[in-house]
């Protein structure tokens, strides 16, 4: 079914095929000049020799990548053995970002669905309500979130008062707090794309499925979610990918006892290390792994899905 229209007739294909280049040109130019150029510069930097305390010396060197994969001991003169430190940091960040994304999805999808099923007139108001908290600076919001989660904070007080727990739980400075930090930083980035997709959903599909004796949860799983999948995926990308490099909120809540990818790279440019090529190399490794994943997704999306079109 997918891509069927492409073969059927030229009029039904790409409505904007001729204008395509012009439509994409502003994005291409902006991103090529302001993002791609700096990224290429950093790619070059990752293969240069580091200058002590920041900066680079224009001599080719593989040292940055070697540092990533090769452990030479505290004094740097042992024979090379596999370096797990940075791979572990990457793995930890991926894992945390993944859990945060899942958390966002669990809360964000019902919220988005709920908003999309409100009367049309009040929907924009709901969407505003979701983003307004983000007008307040992240640092301030995080300090307050930390206050909420403290041992004698409102959350613990509430839970002990309702006898859900007997003793206050230690929440700040734990892995859980790191995920809460990421989750809290990016929640609207899950809600809004899903809302935009669900808002379009044609409920006659659900009714048709119900007529065929599908239960509500089967409809949700088999009809609704596949139809709004682009929104879910967009939301997941917008939460997961920035989470990988984020560190401020997770560090403030989680105690920063372990580097995240973001804080590791930040340290190379803004810390004592001043090792720009290594920071650049770590970024390139992060970038290329995410890019590969996204490209695979993009390839699978070459034609918009038309599986569940109206009247099917």
């Amino acid at each position: 079914m997918a891509g069927g229209a492409t073969i059927e007739g030229s009029n039904t294909t790409a409505t904007y095929e001729q204008a395509r280049t012009w439509l994409l040109l502003p994005a291409w130019i902006t991103l090529a000049v302001l993002v791609l150029t700096p990224v290429l510069l950093m790619l070059v930097y990752s293969f240069l020799t580091k200058e002590f305390r920041g900066g680079v010396i224009w001599e080719f060197s593989f040292a940055a990548y070697e540092q990533f994969f090769c452990d030479r001991g505290l004094f740097g003169d042992d024979p090379c053995s596999m370096e797990w430190t940075y791979i572990n940091i990457f793995w930890r960040s991926i894992w945390q970002a993944g859990l945060a994304t899942l958390l966002c999805l669990c809360i964000g999808f019902p919220t988005a669905y709920f908003i999309a099923t409100r009367p049309e007139r009040v929907r924009p108001m709901w969407v505003f309500l979701i983003t307004i908290p983000y007008w307040v600076n992240l640092l301030i919001r995080t300090v307050s979130m930390r206050f909420m989660l403290r041992e004698e904070g409102p959350v613990n007080n509430f839970l002990t008062w309702t006898h859900i727990i007997d003793e206050p739980i230690q929440m700040i400075n734990t892995n859980f707090a790191v995920q809460v930090g990421l989750f809290y930083s990016y929640l609207p980035f899950m809600v809004l794309p899903i809302y935009a997709a669900v808002e379009r959903y044609n409920f006659t599909l659900s009714e048709a499925a119900a007529d065929l004796y599908a239960t509500k949860w089967v409809i949700l799983r088999r009809v609704l979610i596949p139809t709004v999948k682009p929104g879910v995926i967009a939301g997941c990308i917008l939460v997961f990918v920035p989470s990988l490099g984020a560190f401020l909120a997770p560090d403030l809540l989680g105690g920063a006892k372990n580097f995240m990818i973001g804080s590791l790279i930040e340290e190379q440019f803004k810390g004592n290390a001043g090792n720009w090529p290594f920071g650049a190399a770590a970024s390139m490794i992060l970038l290329s792994s995410v890019l590969v994943l996204l490209m695979i997704y993009a390839r699978s999306q070459v034609r918009p899905r038309r599986v569940h079109s109206e009247g099917a």
């Binding site: 492409t6 700096p38 990224v39 970024s283 992060l286 995410v290």
Partner: peptide, 26 residues
């Protein structure tokens, strides 16, 4: 709406690029 074209995947990569680069590097 532009149909299938060469560079579509690449364009998507370019558009997503700012998400992937840690802010300090940018």
């Amino acid at each position: 709406r532009g149909g299938r074209f060469r560079g579509r995947t690449l364009s998507f990569g370019l558009i997503s690029l700012p998400l992937m680069v840690p802010e300090i590097v940018t």
